[in-house]
Amino acid sequence: MKKKTVLMGMVMFGMAFSTMAQTKTPVGSLGQNDPKAKVVLDNVSKKFKSLKSVIANFILKVEGANNSVTDSKKGSVYVKGPKYKVIMGEQEIISDNKTSWTYAKDVNEVTINNVDQSNTSMTPAKIFTNFYDKDFLYRLTGESTEKGKVLQNIELTPTDKSKTFFKVLVDVDKKNSTLARMKVFEKNGNKYTYEISSFQPNGAVSDDLFTFDAKKYPGVEVVDLR
């Protein structure tokens, strides 16, 4: 289960930004943030915070050091305030902001944990908000056009140089101020691209979606780690 849990963690966009180290280099000693990039990122955060819910589909692409695509998977994420549900293949991660459930359909097993309430934990909701201000330097590198959409391109560099990744590229839909794509560059040469294929604001999302009902999964094995 450990390997699958790590994979789903990446799907939640937490792989790149999970638990920051305690010791960081002061931002001022590394350089200054680009005010133009901050405006773009702040608009994304403001837009997301104004929504009651979000339903998004995404594609996760994993590339090896030789730039060949070694894996590609589709998934969906549902977000309502701090609550979320991520579905990819035969796996799901569900959280009501108090309890989290990680379900593996292939083995019919669910692992239950308490939600980490610390500010350092990363969730799908946080990736759309101002996760960038304290832990990254950022700059606007330009604009590009894809499929008729103008994307604002931003490069983020972690202030904690002990992280396994050294750069994150973020593309923002200029018209809608929504996250379109994020690409994480690891020091070992691997790259992880999270591409939002559809983004539905204020979609109908029931609170029942953010809890795991074992009665609906006959014979499920429960691993309670709380």
Rank of each mutant, 00 (worst) to 15 (best):
residue 7 L to A: 14
residue 9 G to Q: 12
residue 9 G to W: 02
residue 9 G to E: 13
residue 13 F to T: 11
residue 13 F to A: 15
residue 15 M to N: 13
residue 16 A to K: 01
residue 17 F to N: 11
residue 18 S to I: 08
residue 19 T to G: 14
residue 19 T to C: 13
residue 20 M to T: 14
residue 21 A to K: 11
residue 34 D to A: 08
residue 37 A to W: 01
residue 37 A to P: 04
residue 38 K to E: 15
residue 41 L to T: 00
residue 42 D to M: 07
residue 44 V to N: 01
residue 62 V to N: 12
residue 65 A to Q: 15
residue 71 D to Y: 12
residue 72 S to F: 05
residue 74 K to M: 14
residue 79 V to M: 09
residue 81 G to E: 08
residue 81 G to A: 05
residue 82 P to F: 07
residue 83 K to W: 04
residue 85 K to P: 05
residue 90 E to I: 09
residue 94 I to V: 06
residue 94 I to D: 00
residue 95 S to F: 08
residue 102 T to I: 11
residue 103 Y to M: 02
residue 103 Y to N: 00
residue 106 D to F: 09
residue 107 V to F: 08
residue 107 V to G: 01
residue 107 V to T: 12
residue 107 V to I: 15
residue 109 E to G: 04
residue 116 D to A: 08
residue 121 S to A: 15
residue 123 T to K: 00
residue 124 P to A: 02
residue 124 P to I: 04
residue 128 F to S: 05
residue 131 F to M: 09
residue 131 F to S: 02
residue 131 F to A: 02
residue 133 D to I: 09
residue 135 D to P: 13
residue 136 F to I: 02
residue 143 E to L: 02
residue 144 S to N: 10
residue 144 S to Y: 03
residue 144 S to I: 07
residue 147 K to R: 12
residue 149 K to D: 10
residue 150 V to F: 06
residue 150 V to W: 05
residue 156 L to M: 15
residue 157 T to I: 13
residue 160 D to H: 13
residue 162 S to D: 12
residue 163 K to Q: 13
residue 163 K to V: 06
residue 163 K to R: 15
residue 163 K to G: 03
residue 165 F to T: 09
residue 167 K to Q: 10
residue 170 V to Y: 00
residue 173 D to V: 01
residue 173 D to W: 01
residue 174 K to I: 05
residue 175 K to N: 14
residue 176 N to Y: 07
residue 178 T to W: 06
residue 179 L to G: 01
residue 179 L to I: 07
residue 181 R to S: 11
residue 181 R to T: 02
residue 181 R to P: 03
residue 184 V to S: 02
residue 188 N to G: 09
residue 188 N to W: 06
residue 196 I to V: 15
residue 196 I to A: 12
residue 201 P to H: 06
residue 201 P to V: 04
residue 202 N to G: 08
residue 204 A to G: 03
residue 206 S to Y: 04
residue 208 D to L: 08
residue 208 D to Y: 07
residue 211 T to V: 13
residue 214 A to W: 00
residue 216 K to T: 02
residue 216 K to Y: 08
residue 219 G to P: 01
residue 220 V to S: 00
residue 221 E to Y: 09
residue 224 D to G: 09
residue 224 D to P: 07
residue 225 L to W: 07
residue 226 R to A: 05
residue 226 R to V: 06
